[in-house]
Amino acid sequence: PVYLSVKADNSMFIGNDPVTDETMITALNALTEGKKDTTIFFRADKTVDYETLMKVMDTLHQAGYLKIGLVG
């Protein structure tokens, strides 16, 4: 499974590897070998604001990742 996490300080990680807004999709493409039907499990600290969550989800959708599971 692929886990994308947003921490309380808005830092992002794919698994244990830090990513930025600019590198997130490139890292996901490498990890999933470009398979856009891969489910991305998205988790965020409860203090992360809604705007940040939606920005990340919008970026995922624009890149073609449509299977996003929200996890606690």
Rank of each mutant, 00 (worst) to 15 (best):
N16C: 15
N29E: 13
E51Q: 12
G64R: 02
N29I: 10
N16W: 06
E22I: 09
I68P: 02
A27V: 15
Q62I: 07
T32S: 04
A63Y: 07
E33T: 08
D37T: 07
L28W: 01
M57D: 01
M24D: 00
M57H: 04
E51C: 13
I40D: 00
I40R: 00
K67A: 07
G64N: 02
G72W: 06
L70I: 13
V19N: 01
G72N: 11
I14S: 01
D58K: 14
T20F: 05
G34R: 05
A27K: 14
V2K: 02
P18Y: 09
G15E: 07
D58R: 12
D21T: 15
K46T: 11
T32M: 06
R43A: 13
V71P: 08
K7T: 12
T39Q: 15
A27Y: 13
V2Y: 03
F13S: 05
P18L: 12
Y50N: 10
A44S: 08
N16H: 12
T52P: 02
V2P: 03
Y65L: 01
L4A: 02
K36E: 04
V71R: 06
Y50R: 12
P1Q: 09
A27F: 13
F41G: 02
T26R: 09
L53R: 08
V56W: 07
D49K: 14
G15Y: 04
T32W: 02
N16M: 09
I25D: 01
N29K: 06
D45E: 09
K67Y: 10
K7D: 08
G72I: 14
A27C: 09
T32I: 05
S11G: 05
F41R: 05
K46L: 10
V6P: 01
D21N: 14
L53A: 04
N10K: 14
A30N: 11
M57L: 13
L31I: 11
A63P: 00
K7G: 09
G72H: 11
I25H: 03
D49R: 13
Y3S: 04
G72Y: 08
V6T: 02
T38Y: 07
I40G: 01
R43H: 15
G34L: 05
F41A: 04
S11L: 10
K46Y: 11
Y50M: 13
G72E: 13
Y65Q: 00
R43S: 15
F13R: 05
S5T: 15
L4Q: 01
N16T: 10
N16S: 11
T20C: 04
T38K: 06
D21C: 14
G64S: 02
P18V: 08
T23Y: 06
G34S: 07
I40Y: 00
G34W: 03
T59S: 11
L31P: 00
G15T: 02
V19W: 02
D37C: 08
V19P: 01
H61L: 12
D37L: 05
R43G: 06
N10I: 04
F42I: 15
K55G: 05
D17I: 14
Y65F: 09
L53M: 08
L70G: 07
A44R: 03
M54S: 09
K67E: 07
F42E: 00
D49W: 05
L28T: 01
L53T: 05
T47H: 13
N16E: 12
V2I: 14
T52S: 07
T20A: 03
L4K: 00
I14C: 03
D9A: 08
Y65C: 02
A8C: 10
H61S: 09
E33G: 15
V6S: 01
L31R: 09
L66H: 15
L53Q: 05
G64I: 01
Y65H: 01
G72P: 13
E51K: 12
M57V: 11
L66M: 13
N16F: 09
L66Q: 09
M57I: 14
M54H: 09
D37Q: 08
G34C: 07
K46H: 12
E33Q: 14
V19H: 03
Y65S: 00
I25L: 10
G15V: 02
L60D: 00
T59C: 08
N16P: 08
V48A: 08
I14K: 01
L31C: 07
V19L: 03
V6H: 02
M54R: 14
V56P: 00
G72Q: 12
T39W: 14
K35Y: 09
D58P: 01
H61D: 03
L66P: 03
T32Q: 02
V48C: 06
I40W: 00
